[in-house]
Amino acid sequence: MGAQVHGTQEFNKGKRAELKFSEEAMKTVQKIISNYPEGKHKSALLPVLHVAQAEFGGWLSPEVMDYVASVLNIKPIEVFEVASFYTMYNLKPVGKCVLEVCQTSSCWLNGAEDIVKYIEKKLGIKVGETTKDGMFTLKVAECLGSCGTAPMLQCGASYHENLTFEKVDQLINDYKTAGQRRNYTDLDYKNTL
């Protein structure tokens, strides 16, 4: 592990923007909270963070975490502790489409490294970086439960499996043409299982 920047320093004490869930998102949040018994609303934190991430630009800024804390009536540190524990929450801005290539055993046995290199070359970015136009962020991920259809990558809710270079060309092209942000919470998804 290289030098690390202390977690709290990554945040500016920026001005608190006016944040609010859209009516629809708020309905989803209320529905999630109602899944738990009275007084156990903290349980809603993980799913609500997913909703918040999708709602507020694909990442969780300190302001967003503060807001989620206020919606669930818990302490901000409780939100930060959780958001920083799990890999699906972005604590920094990301591109509209985050390509997460699985790099674990079965995928590696089937050429995941080649896929990563290919995407790096094609998009002109390294793992962890975002393209200049803000369209793509490339990440590597650990086993995504798709080992039988390796190599694979996830983008938002979609699983792209049995990847070849051509398939990668195709999906990048499709995402670019659509130009939309992809979230885990998206209703439309592709999968090739």
Partner: peptide, 14 residues
């Protein structure tokens, strides 16, 4: 905050 060997003691936004 964070996890594994990147876990650290931290306050929320200093």
């Amino acid at each position: 905050v964070h996890r594994g060997d990147a876990a650290e003691i931290s306050t929320y936004i200093q």
